[in-house]
Structures are given as C-alpha cells and as structure tokens.
Design a protein around this nucleic acid. Structure first.
Lengths: 156, 156
DNA sequence: CCTTATTGATCAGTATGCTGATCATCAGTA
DNA sequence: TACTGATGATCAGCATACTGATCAATAAGG
C-alpha cells in the first residue's frame, strides 16, 4: 500500500473528482446549470415534499451547515422554496417549484448518462460490482463522518 | 439507477467523504494536523526532490490552482520550502524539509491504518477488488477532469 | 533577433465540506 | 410553570476544487 495508486483514499478522491467533472459536463451539454449536490437535494425534495433541512441532510448525507448554502442556491434559481413550518417555528419546510420539477425531469437523461460515462472503463458486471462494494464499505463506515446517512428519516 | 443509492456518482461522493473523515481522525489521533491532500503532496515531494508545482499536480492529479494553496500551507507549517529554479525562472522547485521528512515518517502508520479502516466493511479480497475497479474506471476517464494524472511526469 | 504561442504560477470568484459557535425554539422534568 | 437540555438553522472561518483571467518568462518560428 506504499504506492499512492493503491490507497483507497487516494482513489476515492480521484474517482469523485472525475464523477463531478463528468456530471457537470453532461448537465451543461443538456443546457442546464446544476451541480451534483444541488441535483441530489432537488431530487430528494421532490420525493419528500415539506421535508425540513436536517432530515434532508440525513437522506443524502450532507452536513447540516452545507445544506444551508445548497438550498440558498436552489431557491435563488427558483427551483425550490423555503416555507416556515407551522408545527415547529425553528424549522423550514422545503418544496419544489413547478420549474424545479420541470428541470428535474429534463435533466434526468443527462444525469443517467453521466453515471454510465464515469464507469465507461468497466464492463456492466464490473460497474455493478463497484457499486456493490462502495455501498458495502460506506454502510460499515457510515457513522465515521459528521454527515451520516439516515435511512429512516422519512418516518420521523 | 433511479435510486440515488445505486448511482456511482453519489457513492463516489459519499465514499470520499468517509475517506477524508477517517484519514483526519486517524492522523489527529496520532498527534498530527495534516489533510489527505497535504499528505499526498508531501509524500510526492519527498519522492521527487526539486519537483515543480505543475509536475507535482500531474503526479497526484490536483488542479494547478489548488496546488498553490496546498503548498502555501505545507510551507507555512515548515514541512516544505519553495525555491526559485535556476533553469526556468517561472517555476518553483519544491523541497521537503527535515521536519517534513520526520512528519512523513511518523504519520505513515496512521495513514495506512486509515486506508484499512475506510474499507473495514469489506473482506481483504473485496477491498482489493474495489481498488482494482476504481483504478480501472479512473484510468478510462482520466482525461475527463481538468486535473488528469500524468504518469510520466518524472521523466520530463 | 523578433514576434507569437506556450507555459508556470498566481489570483478572483464560486461551490462544496468541515469545525465550532450562536440563536431561537421546543420538549421534558422538577 | 420555570428550568434545563436538546434541536433546527445559520454564521464565521478554513481547506479543497474548479472556471477563467493575468503576468512573467520561455520556446518556436520565420
């Protein structure tokens, strides 16, 4: 493991770097301006109307301090709106707008194309195995980051 | 692939997030304050004395504008020095200091421990396969990012 | 030798991610 | 009910990454 190229950490950084570049290129080619992080948040809000920011952060494993800026930018683009919660005045309910929904639908082919492109060096079986192994490694180390995934978040 | 959890891009981000958290925790527990990025740069400078910043960037696949700040911080910590090149007055030669070398040696066990910890959910064979698949996917998409790896950089 | 293109380094600006703090609000308990 | 602890959101500050620009210096060509 002395060689950098054999270290999982180094490869993780590099693969993520490529994944982001491919995503941005495909999305821009489709005529949109949305980052991977913004896309994930938008999709999660669409699937969970009136979700609050903390629960959203748990769903997509974002740090709670990061989500504030991401939502700011989505709101600035008119794709989501923040609404005060009646139940708890501390929390904000997030809703996707009509334009957000249109954007999400229109952008999906580019997102899927990006997913294929970033593993274009692998066979179909290899790509599936890579996904399986990453999921397994992530599941075992989930609690080691400040922003763990919270699967059951929707049932709160 | 409709599910976020099956998208290579999402998993790449999550795995990298965990890799960084594990690295920082192990390194801090060992009594050091160095980021994964700073470690990779320090190790590359140690192995390639008097390397210039662009070549270094190619070796570890960093963007050229990112490397400036990373070297700033390594220099500020006294681990490396910048020296004007006699051959080309535009470029800076990077050298590791004695303290840099001591730090690199002392920190290595923590770095290796972190590499094992971030794949602790996988068997040995699975971890090896994950590394192989990431390397293969990265190799095929190397040129898609702004900061591609430049293997032959040392022979320039 | 002189013009032109290229290159090494840096900078401004923007977007993640994190640490640690603050503030308002809520929930549970004495 | 009053107090105490926990929680949702945000902020300041720092470290990656990137886009695109600038500047000095070098290389390549005629």
């Amino acid at each position: 493991m002395t060689e950098m190229q054999d270290m999982p950490g180094h490869l993780a950084r590099r693969f993520q770097q490529i994944a982001v570049a491919v995503f941005l290129a495909e999305v821009e080619a489709a005529g949109f301006d949305l980052t991977p992080v913004q896309y994930a948040a938008l999709a999660a809000i669409a699937a969970n109307p009136a979700i609050d920011q903390i629960t959203l952060a748990g769903l997509i494993a974002y740090d709670r301090t990061t989500i504030t800026g991401v939502i700011d930018r989505l709101a600035q683009k008119g794709l989501v709106v923040r609404r005060a919660s009646a139940r708890d005045r501390r929390s904000r309910e997030l809703l996707i707008t009509d334009e957000g929904r249109r954007t999400l639908e229109a952008i999906t082919p580019a997102v899927e194309a990006a997913q294929r492109l970033m593993v274009r060096g692998l066979s179909g079986a290899e790509a599936k195995e890579l996904v399986r192994l990453m999921r397994k490694a992530i599941a075992a180390a989930n609690e080691l980051s400040r922003a763990p995934l919270r699967e059951g978040a929707a049932e709160r």
